[in-house]
Write a protein that binds this DNA or RNA. Structure first.
Lengths: 207, 207
DNA sequence: ACTCGGATGGCAGTTACTGTCAAGTGTGAC
DNA sequence: GTCACACTTGACAGTAACTGCCATCCGAGT
């Protein structure tokens, strides 16, 4: 089996060319998806729009869903990095909220695009599944980082995993509300609200 | 498109026959899955084991994944019913824990089978996605019921959805730990632990 | 016995995905 | 300049998941 995600070791010319094709493919796909919906868009349509063969598509993305969740690919690492960057003595709730904030900021650089993406993802069962899988990965990653900063082993102690899960739940509830409101409400304040509600759990017992 | 899940209105002979085929199919599939894994098991193998045609399989299950998550089909309704059955003045944390308990009890009627199922589900990406989708449905359902018993509208107030999400996260963390421990640890005490940690959030602000 | 609704099987067709091979392209060695 | 090599691509064939359609069959009611 060919690995559809070869690690980008260096930014050679070849690597940048690859990235170009990948982006082109993702953009063409997203454009089609927005108008036709995910299930009614075939891979043949996507590759025709991008001007490559179907075989090439599958050299860049492991599946039809992957081209959509592509933008979430390294979010787990980003969340961890953001969490690591927070001061070590910061309460978990604050650090977690700040880490999520990084993602939200990133997401709000292209608000219309992000909103459209979120709506498609939450509305399409197979994409929702992929998104939730990703979220589960983030949870594991965050739990590890949280364990490190608190001196707890996630394999022993349930609290890091639980705190990560609760934080992501808070984020998810806010995200869904945001998508459901069609952008009427703002994501950041919504996330503030949800985090305020669960803040006690995130802090309690962890310090 | 034919609905693969026609509602069982009455228990006629025909209906019971249908149920028989469905169970036969599910059991044959599970047996194969346990030995070969999900991805390496084809539908042709499943239907051969059950003695029906492939076309019939898809009259009972909407997809290959559905035959696995079949056992979780009405869990959402069960959770709601269990929650509704709890006294109205019970604190949310207690009521939610009790509702989950119903599911756990059901799950522990066939411990070995359940454990095997859980492990396959958590280990197979596409199945994990389906399971998480289901969990998201449960969250919505529970939020509605929680809203009803607290006199809050989940469309207005974020807290019911959040509480449901936190409760399910607690359950999920316990379930994964249970599956990872290979049944060494017991699911019920693990769930007690996780719920104890998040109990404050579940109660705070909701009463 | 007749009929009629529902369950089934077979078959063809679409779509997602994969392995393989041959051809094209750019890069570096000489 | 050219040869060699790594890398990318496209074409093709093949598998597996699913769907629509139709012919058949079987049990229930009249």
């Amino acid at each position: 089996m060919t690995d559809p995600y070869p690690p980008a070791r260096e930014t050679s010319l070849a690597e940048r060319k690859r990235q170009l094709v990948r982006d082109e493919l993702a953009e063409a796909a997203l454009k089609l998806l927005a108008s036709q919906g995910f299930e009614d868009t075939t891979i043949d349509q996507m590759v025709a729009a991008a001007g490559v063969s179907q075989r090439t598509f599958f050299r860049y993305f492991g599946s039809k869903e992957d081209v959509v969740v592509y933008s979430l690919a390294d979010t787990g690492a980003q969340l961890c990095a953001a969490l690591t960057a927070r001061p070590a003595d910061e309460p978990p709730a604050v650090a977690l909220r700040a880490a999520i904030s990084v993602f939200i900021t990133l997401c709000l650089e292209h608000p219309a695009k992000s909103l459209r993406l979120a709506r498609v993802m939450l509305a399409t069962p197979s994409l929702l599944g992929r998104y939730l899988e990703r979220q589960a990965e983030w949870r594991r990653d965050i739990a590890v980082e949280l364990g490190r900063r608190l001196g707890l082993d996630p394999a022993d102690d349930l609290r890091p995993e639980l705190a990560a899960g609760v934080a992501l739940t808070a984020f998810d509830v806010a995200l869904r509300r945001w998508a459901a409101s069609d952008g009427t409400e703002d994501l950041d304040p919504l996330t503030d609200q949800t985090f305020a509600i669960v803040a006690d759990t995130l802090n309690a017992g962890l310090r």
